[in-house]
């Protein structure tokens, strides 16, 4: 039971100032190009982050207080205050990490960003996967990403592969762990079969039956120890949610 003990330890010992550990990391995206902002927000939400977006930095100070982001993605070229000016604001007023989006592939821009305290930068045009991966890396470095997620009495540690329901350990296959990890990242949010398929299996296989088969196998294992957590939302998809009732 040492692995389980470790999971519990991590579940209750990490960064108390950021609230409960099982809360997803919060990412604020400031980018004026609407399509890029929508795409980045969607990709981050898909990766399990709580997200908010703005076309400019006019309300940055309020957002830092209200949304309390763990990380801010800043476009360098912005209307009004540019990314470097906003970077200073973030640095002064919060502990959030910063990833810059630099349009120009200019060394001076990148150096200026890094010297100004940015944790990383991505040069436009960028791959969404790369941006998400870099954001994840920065958040891990800042220890703002919980590897342990709790939904009701279900505890999932994707890193060690330990799944607990109450005090019982549930044995899951590698695929089931990935599926559970994805659903846990999206906890409380309805995801379609297609989203699950692309999120867990990627774009190269397309067989919706995969989702159904693995979802029902996972349900059987989870429901052996308590009520249903993996709900079906008719016509839309699935959601991992602890019913308060």
């Amino acid at each position: 039971m040492t692995r389980v003990a470790a999971v519990f330890q991590r579940l209750f010992s990490l960064s108390p100032e950021n609230g409960p550990v099982s809360e997803p990391a919060r990412v604020l995206v400031i980018e004026d190009a609407e399509t890029i902002r929508i795409a980045v927000l969607a990709a981050l939400a898909d990766a399990g982050y709580a997200v908010a977006g703005h076309p400019d930095g006019a309300t940055l100070e309020e957002e830092l207080q209200q949304f309390r982001p763990d990380l801010v993605v800043l476009d360098v070229m912005l209307p009004g205050r540019d990314g470097f000016a906003l970077l200073e604001v973030v640095r002064r007023r919060s502990e959030a990490g910063v990833v810059l989006l630099t349009a120009r592939d200019a060394v001076s821009d990148r150096l200026r960003g890094l010297h100004g305290g940015a944790d990383d930068y991505v040069v436009k045009p960028f791959e969404l996967e790369e941006l998400v991966a870099r954001i994840g890396a920065v958040l891990r470095r800042l220890r703002r990403v919980p590897s342990v997620v709790q939904v009701g009495d279900l505890v999932i540690d994707a890193d060690s592969g330990v799944v607990l329901r109450g005090s019982e350990q549930i044995e899951v296959t590698a695929t089931e762990l990935r599926l559970l990890g994805y659903l846990a990242a999206q906890r409380g949010r309805v995801v379609s079969k297609t989203q699950i398929l692309t999120g867990v299996w990627g774009y190269d296989d397309y067989d919706p039956n995969l989702v159904e088969v693995h979802v029902s196998a996972l349900r059987r294992k989870l429901e052996a120890y308590g009520p249903r957590l993996l709900q079906t939302v008719r016509g839309l998809g699935y959601v991992l949610r602890a019913d308060e009732s």
């Binding site: 399509t35 795409a39 791959e127 309805v190 989203q195 839309l236």
Partner: peptide
């Protein structure tokens, strides 16, 4: 092509709960 890919992927990611605005933009 990267734009097409990003838009298509985002449409999938937005999922059933997406705002109609965002979907149309993509």
């Amino acid at each position: 092509l990267a734009g097409v890919q990003a838009a298509a992927e985002t449409l999938v990611r937005l999922g059933p709960g997406a705002q109609q605005d965002d979907v149309e933009r993509m």
